[in-house]
Design a protein around this nucleic acid. Structure first.
Lengths: 367, 367
DNA sequence: TTGTAGGCGTTATCAG
DNA sequence: CTGATAACGCCTACAA
């Protein structure tokens, strides 16, 4: 038996009222109650009203545990993220929670702390909580992804986002990083820049590889030869951004623009340029990536790429709901790529019509 | 019956194995299995090993729903926050999730979107999910808090954080804002500032009222008369910060320091000061509040107050766990105030020994 | 030390 | 349209 409090505190805990209670009160069966509450078709409108009224009167709350146990599925969606901090993940989670709750689901959230072992444990917990589906962004230390087989073998809907398992047999939502690099670089070209440098991130990470690729694609399209001396590889710290700029400005032919694969790198570059007495954007235009909060308050404000965090969350939920709706019927896994949004600000505007330029790159969903 | 998939996809969904399955396999009763798995004392070590081995072999996952239904309590903690964005709430949630999962609980998260109606609905959902306890930060539109009576009448542990119900009959965790204002102002005094202005927030909000109070307390303690012309009331936007600074600098005796009750206000003030050709901190020292990310990258870097977001989450969980542990026995509600941490940076350092000054204000937990 | 049996609250099935 | 009944998977008093 569920333990009853032995010593009643000032406030006597109230036992929640159950369907059985309502049934007894009305002198009908539990079946009838259940049907009235779940709006089953075979129920008289008179009866239904009576039940609903009584339920309101007694403040009846359905017990979701019991319902979920019986049905074998809860109304919970599990999320596993590396952590809930910084700008990106919280926004995605925000998007997820909003979309999920709109669809009648609630969200149970786990952090892997960039640790596979923790990720595996989280997965077990979500499985044993009988969630209706799982959304995952992989930890950095996840090289072996076999633990997700268990999810699949249960037939449990699974969608990856941002840090995904590569391949076309998984459901995934990502930002189109290549496009981000491409539109940024095209924008810089449109501003009259011709020697565009790139502050590139670690190339073993897909996001940075793809941003670099977009940069190269735009240059090639513009008929500008790739120049490796203009590409500086680094992590995306502010310090490395400054170091990069120092080296680039020391070149015989220094660049007239820098596209950085991250905002912190761009910040460091911008600071170094100004330390050396250069004007931004007149002498060197600068564009970053990620739409960090601080990009609005640098002087000049920084051009950057918005990663559509909330949309990513929404898209992930939408995809998950589709898989849930398919309900075990074979569902062909799908990969969704979101279009990045270029935010043109003063750090890169040298031509008179920034509004027009900006507008032409504003974009929305890929279906 | 739980619906079985009619059409098996390529991957045949595996039915999770239950205790009954293990019992049948081993030819013992479910009781024995249950006891072995939950490490009950009255179980033979040999038997226990056998059961554990089989459980591992079949990859047994306990069904938490069933367990929770039986026991009347889940291992879930419910959180209601206004939203998951910006710097503050994500960090608190991070702290909560970390502490909760350490204690064997998982976290189900809801956003009120600053809407009481939504907050009420969230509460209903958490109640019907049979959570073990609830953590709440109130929405801005929550004036009437009677919906929380329902939680109390169920005897369900409840802890407020940051945006709390005032009074000593609730459990609550907050930052000591008064102390934040106090240590900031003392710091400015220690830097030789004597005419210290205050950019104050809307006084109907406790946080701003208390920050202002701390400012006044420090001045009084230093024997400096309160001067209302040095207090500018505004929301904490960057624009209002600039406007405030414009007005303050136009005074017959302009201030030599500004303590702003928020970082964005401080930023606006700093920008305006520099626009007018003043040096920060030599001509006017500046201190903000909240430790926004950007405070590290302003030039000079901005002195500010860290709100100990993660600690707040941890403290809230700790308190909640105590209430849970009390298990209906009368538990005297407690209010915890966290000590803010002053982060001394260059926007306010005019004396030679900033390290020492900083150290004397670094602080930790109030028990 | 082990087994038996009943029930947590809901819902699906089958029969009236 | 309504009702009786049997699960869902786990836990625990009570009996052996």
């Amino acid at each position: 038996m569920a333990p009853r409090k032995k010593q009643a505190p000032a406030q006597i805990p109230t036992t929640p009222v159950s369907m059985a209670d309502l049934a007894r009160e009305l002198g009908v069966s539990m079946t009838t109650i259940s049907r009235a509450l779940s709006d089953h078709h075979s129920i008289g409108p008179a009866m239904k009203q009576k039940v609903l009224k009584l339920a309101k009167k007694y403040n009846y709350q359905p017990n979701r545990l019991a319902s979920a146990l019986r049905k074998g599925k809860s109304q919970l969606i599990g999320i596993i993220v590396p952590y809930i901090e910084g700008r990106f993940f919280p926004s995605v989670v925000h998007g997820i929670e909003t979309a999920a709750s709109k669809a009648g689901y609630n969200v149970i959230i786990c952090q892997s702390n960039e640790d596979v072992a923790q990720e595996r444990r989280n997965l077990e917990i979500l499985l044993s909580a009988q969630v209706a589906g799982i959304l995952v962004s992989l930890s950095r230390t996840t090289l072996d992804v076999r633990h997700f087989e268990k999810v699949r073998s249960r037939g449990l809907p699974l969608v990856f986002f941002d840090r995904i398992v590569e391949g076309d047999n998984v459901n995934a939502v990502v930002l189109n990083d290549q496009e981000g690099g491409y539109v940024s670089t095209r924008h810089l070209l449109s501003q009259g820049c011709r020697r565009i440098a790139h502050l590139a991130g670690p190339q073993h990470l897909n996001i940075y590889k793809n941003r670099r690729q977009g940069y190269l694609d735009a240059l090639r399209e513009a008929g500008i030869a790739e120049d490796e001396s203009l590409i500086y590889y680094a992590d995306m710290s502010q310090e490395q951004g400054s170091a990069a700029m120092r080296q680039l400005l020391a070149l015989p032919e220094p660049p007239d623009a820098v596209f950085a694969a991250g905002d912190y790198g761009a910040l460091g570059a911008m600071q170094e340029a100004r330390r050396q007495g250069l004007r931004v954007p007149q002498d060197v235009a600068i564009a970053g990536f990620s739409n960090e909060t601080f990009t609005l308050i640098t002087e000049p404000a920084m051009t950057t790429i918005d990663q559509r965090c909330e949309e990513m969350g929404q898209a992930a939920v939408r995809l998950l709901l589709e898989v849930i709706a398919a309900d075990g019927a074979l569902f062909t896994p799908r990969q969704v790529a979101l279009r990045p949004e270029l935010l043109v600000r003063n750090s890169s505007v040298r031509q008179p019509e920034p509004a027009l330029v900006a507008k032409s790159f504003t974009s929305s969903f890929v279906p």
